[in-house]
Design a protein around this nucleic acid. Structure first.
Lengths: 144, 144
DNA sequence: TTTGATTCCGATAAATTTGTCCTTAATTTG
DNA sequence: CAAATTAAGGACAAATTTATCGGAATCAAA
């Protein structure tokens, strides 16, 4: 469903958000360890999230990654997915047809539209703040 | 969502089924052309479908691929997906956690379970016969 | 029984995704 | 200012997926 980069990215953002809620920055090393992702690969993913203005970063001692407080509630899962995987899961035909729409549908068009719509709806609704809070309360988890 | 191999595979099975409904076999060359898939790659996918007993094949002149009449109604989309992509889209955590279940859920567990369940339900329901009939009636299409 | 048509299958190549390494730039602290 | 710490970023490597090639096996028909 999501690429590995995206899986890492979502988990990382949530981990960082938990710390940002306490005004703390999170260093790459911590993140990679928690997420169990290769450090250098995690770094690339985080860079992409910074470029897309989902995260902020600062170098030097006391540096690290963080998210602006006012973005914690407004950042939706779909933004993270778009930043890393693009919109390939949101657009395009399930069977790979170059042209597939209402008027010229592939054999699974309607059925998939329904599923994709509910996926999009879901990702557009879920915000980083609520999810991170669940992680903080140990209602949900970021590692096994 | 599906791999390219799987997209080709689903479309190919439907194309073959349309012909099988008229007791005709379909040659690789025709299939690849219709599906707009590289011939050699299409061949690999078809071989896999034959190994999984979804399709039958015969060599020589008048040979080609076909599906047994009694399987046309009973073959579900999910079997094709499983044969080619395995069950990775049906099992495992959306965020890649090695352990993720009701008792130890990732932050998107419940939301994704819902979507995945409806995807599974859909794929288990849709049969090759009905879809191929729609293609034959030009209610649905296999190429742009 | 020979020939041509077709699938089967192993080897390889190209493209993409995932993962690694190393140097540079920026920042904090002493 | 110097040293230590951290992210940025380019170049490369490994793994996976997608695609290509060539010959072997099988079959139909003349």
């Amino acid at each position: 469903m999501f690429s590995k980069a995206c899986e890492y990215g979502i988990r990382a953002v949530l981990f960082i958000t938990v710390h940002s809620l306490q005004n703390k920055r999170t260093r790459l090393k911590e993140i990679a360890k928690e997420i169990e992702a290769p450090e250098a690969f995690m770094a690339k993913v985080l860079q992409k999230l910074v470029k897309h203005n989902i995260l902020l970063s600062s170098t030097g001692p006391k540096g690290g990654f963080y998210i602006e407080p006012e973005k914690i509630k407004s950042t939706k899962l779909i933004q993270i997915v778009r930043a890393i995987d693009g919109d390939k899961i949101f657009v395009g035909c399930a069977l790979g047809l170059p042209k597939c729409d209402e008027n010229h549908p592939c054999p699974v068009h309607d059925n998939f539209k329904e599923i994709r719509d509910s996926l999009t709806e879901m990702l557009s609704t879920m915000d980083v703040g609520e999810m991170a809070t669940n992680v903080d309360k140990e209602i949900a988890f970021l590692k096994y």
